[in-house]
């Protein structure tokens, strides 16, 4: 729970976190090393200096640290895992569904564990997806369309096999499709940031929700255009959030654009932990006000009602979470007791 400057206590969902292992032992090749180096540059270039992690901690961190950073220091009440494997770079994968699930078991009602798929795995992958749904009761998947697989350096959601996987999601009731559209790895001559493939599938699959993580940056304008057309397209704020510290004016400009082109019901907060810690992001977000000129030009309203939607209600709606009963469920659980102890 986080107390807004107005005094109101609000429920918070961090819709984009990860538990990764990029340790030297797990790196498969130079790409694995360069991938985490790049993450670390994101981390230091946009976090306030007092929140910089030592590089070694950043390579691999414990689940205890995650719980502390996200829930105890981080103000979140729930968090969603958005895993990515990168098997071409890491021996046991960058993320790991089993490790996520174990943590969720240890802390009931605190996590949503999403799965993932890669359409280039063909029919075998469809079976894996089914088994994954069965085992982890998936409600969503995180897709990384720029992931490497064999000779392929990425895919599109509109590729025939990707469409078959989305049909499978619809059939299995996996409703939330999070797509990483943003800074990416080695796209070739087609514009791999292009969000047009989201447009295609959002039209075809009206029963699915498409959450474009990182707002399709650096193609914000294309994302806004698509989201205006397709009502089942959402924007995830991870990667955009830290600008609230580094470039607050730009953060305000982007919020103004989002509220103008989309609406307040289709924007989701995410920290992208461990690249950035949710604690300072939420504190700054709760205090943030739109400068008058931006509010005037876009007609955007950024009040507590909107902040509550972005920080929890929108994500809760997509995942069928009733915030009121969720509050009851987590009352006096392990994390809540720790929080109460630290207040004494």
């Amino acid at each position: 729970m986080y107390r807004l400057p107005s005094g109101e206590e609000i429920f918070v969902i961090d819709a984009h976190i990860a538990l990764w292992d990029a340790s030297k032992e797990n790196q498969r090749n130079v790409h694995g090393e360069q991938f985490i180096n790049c993450f670390y540059d994101y981390h230091t270039s946009l976090s306030p200096k007092e929140y910089w992690w030592p590089k070694d901690d950043f390579l691999k961190y414990s689940k205890e640290r995650l719980v502390k950073d996200v829930f105890i220091k981080g103000h979140a009440d729930m968090a969603f895992f958005q895993p990515v494997f990168l098997n071409e770079f890491y021996k046991n994968g960058f993320g790991n569904l089993e490790a996520n699930a174990q943590l969720a078991k240890e802390y009931p009602n605190r996590f949503i564990c999403n799965g993932t798929f890669d359409p280039r795995h063909g029919s075998r992958g469809l079976e894996v997806l089914e088994a994954m749904k069965e085992k982890y009761d998936l409600q969503g998947v995180k897709l990384y369309t720029a992931d490497w697989y064999g000779d392929s350096k990425g895919y599109k959601l509109s590729d025939p096999w990707a469409v078959r996987y989305l049909e499978k999601c619809e059939e299995l009731g996996i409703k939330n499709i999070h797509i990483h559209k943003g800074p990416t790895i080695t796209p070739l001559n087609r514009d791999a940031f292009d969000v047009a493939d989201v447009d295609d599938v959002a039209t075809t699959f009206q029963g699915l929700n498409f959450i474009v993580e990182h707002l399709g940056l650096p193609r914000l304008e294309d994302f806004c255009w698509i989201a205006t057309q397709e009502k089942n397209v959402y924007g995830g704020l991870s990667v955009v959030m830290p600008f609230i510290h580094a470039r607050p004016r730009y953060f305000a400009e982007i919020m103004g654009e989002l509220l103008f082109w989309l609406d307040e019901d289709r924007i989701l907060f995410g920290s992208d932990y461990a690249i950035w810690e949710p604690g300072w992001l939420i504190e700054k977000f709760a205090e943030f006000e739109l400068p008058e000129d931006i509010a005037k030009e876009t007609g955007a309203v950024f009040d507590d009602k909107v902040k509550k939607k972005i920080l929890a209600e929108n994500a809760a709606r997509l995942y069928g979470i009733d915030i009121k009963s969720q509050k009851e469920k987590i009352k006096n659980d392990k994390i809540d007791r720790q929080l109460n102890m630290s207040k004494v």
Partner: peptide, 11 residues
């Protein structure tokens, strides 16, 4: 929005 996107990317 085209300008903002390019500038944001630049930062």
């Amino acid at each position: 929005s085209t300008r903002l996107s390019m500038e944001f990317n630049g930062h």
